[in-house]
Structures are given as C-alpha cells and as structure tokens.
Computed example of a mutant assay.
Amino acid sequence: MSYVGPDFDPPQPRRFRRGPLTVALAALVPGALIGWFVYEAVGGPGDSGRAAAGTSATAPGVSSSPSVTASNDDKPPNSRPLTGKVVVIDPGHNVTNFQHTAEINRKVDIGTNWKECDTTGTSTNSGYAEAQFTMDVSHRLRKILERQGATVKLTHDGGSPAWGPCVDERAKIGNAAHADAAISIHADGAPAGDRGFHVILPASVHAGGADTRAIVAPSAVLGRNIESDYRRVTGEQPSNYVGDGTGLVTRKDLGGLNLSTVPKVFIECGNMRDSKDAALLTNGVWRQAAAQGISEGIVSFLRG
C-alpha cells in the first residue's frame, strides 16, 4: 500500500492459464486444503500457470494444519455463527486507478489533514498489481463469510466504480452499512528484505470530521484477533520492519480509519516487493489461506 514510486508501472492486462488438478498434487497437502485446489483448477486472478510467478501449488508458508472449512453451504441456518452480522470489506486501490490520475490525486479531508483520494497501489516485480491481489482476497473472504451467514458488502467490485472510490467514501460505505466489522485489504510495497504482515489499528483521533474515540477499543480487539488467526492459518510471520514483531501498528494518517464510525482495521498481507513474500501473494492456494485466516479473526471478534 505504501509504495508509490517512479518505477511503478501500471498493471497491464495478463493472460492466465489454467493448470490441471492432479492426484499427486492433492496428496501433498492436508485434506482440509483440497477444496482450495478445486478452486485453483479453474484458475484465479494473479496465477499465470503458477510457475511464472515462481510459486509452487503447495503454497509455501501455509500452516500445515490450517483450520479450514471447505463449505458451510449445507449447514442449517442455526449453525451459521454470523447470521445477522454485517461485514464490509474494502479491497485496497482499484486496478484502473492508473487511468484516472487526476481523479485519484484530488485531495480529500481525512480529519487530521488532507490526502489524495486514492493511489495506484504497488505491485510485485513481475507486475502482479496490489489491486488485483486485494480484489481476489476480498472475493474469497466474502464467500467464506457469507457461508457463515454474514451480510457482506464490498466498497467496490468488478470495475464499479471505474476508479477509487476515495478513501473518505470507503469509510462512509462501512458507516452507512452499520457494519459490525470492517476491514481494508492491502499488500505493502516496502524494500526487498522487509517481510511479513501487519494489521493497522486506528489511533484515537478527534479532529475535523474524524472521531475514532468510540471505535479504538473494539478495533483493537478485531485487529488482535485477525493478527493471531492470520498468522496461525497462513504461517506468515509478523512484519520485520514495523510493529516490533507484534504484527500490530497504530496509525492516525489513514482516512479509511480516521473517518470510520464502525470497528475497522487494515491488513498489509505481505510485502509485494520482497521475492519471498511475492511468491506467497501470487499463489492462489496461499491467498485462500489468507482469506481463511482473516475470516477466522472476524468470526472470533463478532462472536465475542
């Protein structure tokens, strides 16, 4: 999320190949992951035959015993723990932002100061855009949460709107939905060698149109739950460059948090500019684990 530099090339359209699902491949992983490979058999955004991304289908870094439920579709309604809950997912950036530089460079009030409406986001060195990653994980996360009974809303989806939305609008969408929990999905663009994930919590802000005082405490609980479950399910380690190894960071310069009136956090799922993290982020099996880990943190928070 944080990388905006002169050597960032706008994401270009890519042609994706769909690899076969083999018996030998299924034998390499726990039975709980088989459902993921079924998804991979029909392909997922960001996977170019997997080999091109330098990743293997065994999803290096995924916990050997992730607590994954392949499907809750056949469960009776009273077994769906999120029935009646509303979750808003904010996929960071937008794949077409680079075509709307004037619009996304417009400044908006985030309470503590004025910032750009949005940015292009970062990408891996091979050109896999952060916005592609965030949308893919958001779709996976939505499916998991809906299977558990939640009402899920995305701040944008499938090119609608055509750019953005601006960070203040993203916060307003969660507020208007009266979300029980909201999360913004990102991946970082730090220097190579900086690895790991971190969850960003809202600081206490009371300035301009921002007042986070009521959501600081519940957001911290949400963030801690997500940090713990994300680490356990994915095997990804907390950031080695921010957060002092806790996987948690508090910030007051993000409009999506400052302007939220519902419990909300950001997650930087890994560093796209580091080759080892990029190998995970470009792997569809690992992205499914990422969505699962995030979902389990949200469930833990909503169930109290």
Results as ranks from 00 to 15, higher is better:
residue 204 S to Y: 04
residue 143 K to M: 03
residue 216 V to W: 06
residue 148 Q to V: 07
residue 145 L to A: 01
residue 186 H to K: 13
residue 219 S to I: 14
residue 193 G to P: 12
residue 195 R to A: 05
residue 150 A to G: 13
residue 215 I to R: 06
residue 149 G to C: 00
residue 207 A to W: 08
residue 135 M to I: 04
residue 105 N to Q: 12
residue 141 L to K: 10
residue 131 A to D: 13
residue 176 A to F: 04
residue 219 S to T: 11
residue 190 A to R: 11
residue 121 G to N: 05
residue 165 P to G: 07
residue 214 A to V: 06
residue 217 A to D: 07
residue 172 K to E: 15
residue 201 L to C: 11
residue 122 T to H: 11
residue 146 E to W: 01
residue 144 I to G: 06
residue 172 K to G: 12
residue 228 S to L: 06
residue 204 S to R: 04
residue 134 T to S: 07
residue 220 A to D: 13
residue 212 T to F: 00
residue 207 A to K: 15
residue 213 R to E: 09
residue 132 Q to M: 12
residue 175 N to R: 14
residue 101 T to D: 06
residue 155 T to D: 10
residue 229 D to H: 02
residue 198 H to R: 08
residue 214 A to Q: 08
residue 144 I to C: 05
residue 171 A to Y: 09
residue 183 I to P: 04
residue 208 G to T: 12
residue 108 V to R: 02
residue 147 R to S: 04
residue 227 E to A: 15
residue 120 T to E: 04
residue 146 E to L: 01
residue 108 V to Q: 02
residue 148 Q to T: 09
residue 114 W to E: 09
residue 160 S to H: 13
residue 119 T to F: 03
residue 177 A to F: 13
residue 157 D to A: 09
residue 183 I to G: 06
residue 148 Q to K: 15
residue 169 E to P: 01
residue 148 Q to Y: 10
residue 224 R to H: 13
residue 217 A to T: 00
residue 129 A to I: 12
residue 158 G to R: 00
residue 161 P to E: 08
residue 166 C to H: 05
residue 120 T to G: 02
residue 131 A to V: 10
residue 217 A to W: 03
residue 150 A to C: 13
residue 193 G to H: 14
residue 166 C to Q: 07
residue 136 D to N: 05
residue 166 C to P: 04
residue 208 G to S: 09
residue 144 I to N: 06
residue 115 K to M: 00
residue 199 V to M: 12
residue 180 D to C: 03
residue 203 A to T: 11
residue 140 R to V: 08
residue 122 T to E: 11
residue 142 R to I: 12
residue 128 Y to N: 15
residue 205 V to S: 03
residue 118 D to E: 06
residue 129 A to G: 15
residue 126 S to T: 15
residue 133 F to I: 14
residue 164 G to L: 06
residue 161 P to S: 10
residue 215 I to E: 06
residue 204 S to N: 07
residue 183 I to Y: 05
residue 120 T to W: 03
residue 219 S to R: 02
residue 106 R to K: 15
residue 191 P to M: 11
residue 166 C to M: 15
residue 128 Y to V: 15
residue 196 G to N: 08
residue 172 K to D: 14
residue 188 D to K: 08
residue 190 A to Y: 10
residue 164 G to Q: 08
residue 167 V to D: 05
residue 194 D to A: 12
residue 162 A to G: 06
residue 185 I to A: 08
residue 190 A to H: 11
residue 129 A to P: 13
residue 138 S to M: 03
residue 223 G to P: 12
residue 166 C to R: 06
residue 146 E to Y: 00
residue 199 V to L: 06
residue 108 V to T: 10
residue 179 A to T: 04
residue 152 V to D: 01
residue 217 A to Y: 05
